[in-house]
């Protein structure tokens, strides 16, 4: 898992990333900035759980990703099978390239979780 995060962290615009289980417990993390990883993991997993239940009623199908943009950074919360991949990004990051990298990392997390 750590290698998946290390690879993702090399992509321009990524400030750090982590993998949490669906209960929000941190499984692996790699941040180059000062953040409260446990807090991010817990809050992100509870937001996603609420979202998953809510969007069933507005016809967008199964939740794949939730991206939150603030005035400082962006956070991508990505469904990765039994886990969630959380990626903290620079606010102005180019999402065209990053979306591909993030999806590949999420797929790698799913594969590794099967092992």
């Amino acid at each position: 898992m750590q290698s998946v995060l290390a690879k993702l962290n090399k992509v321009s615009g990524v400030r750090g990333c982590m993998i949490v289980n669906k209960d929000g417990i941190v499984a692996a993390s790699d941040f180059g900035v000062d953040v409260d990883e446990n807090s991010i993991g817990a809050v992100a997993s509870s937001i996603l759980a609420a979202l998953e239940a809510a969007i069933k009623r507005i016809q967008v199908g199964r939740l794949k990703k939730f991206m939150v943009t603030g005035n400082e950074n962006k956070l991508a919360i990505v469904d990765a099978g039994p886990a969630l991949l959380l990626v903290l990004l620079q606010r102005e990051a180019n999402m065209g390239i990053l979306n591909v990298e993030i999806q590949e990392a999420a797929a790698a997390v799913v594969e590794k979780a099967k092992m």
Binding site: A44, G61, K65, F66, V68, G70, N71, L88
Partner: peptide
């Protein structure tokens, strides 16, 4: 707490 600062926008990506 999510580390993004003040909320500005969100995007939900679903299968459909």
């Amino acid at each position: 707490q999510l580390g993004v600062g003040t909320f500005e926008e969100g995007m939900i990506e679903g299968e459909m």
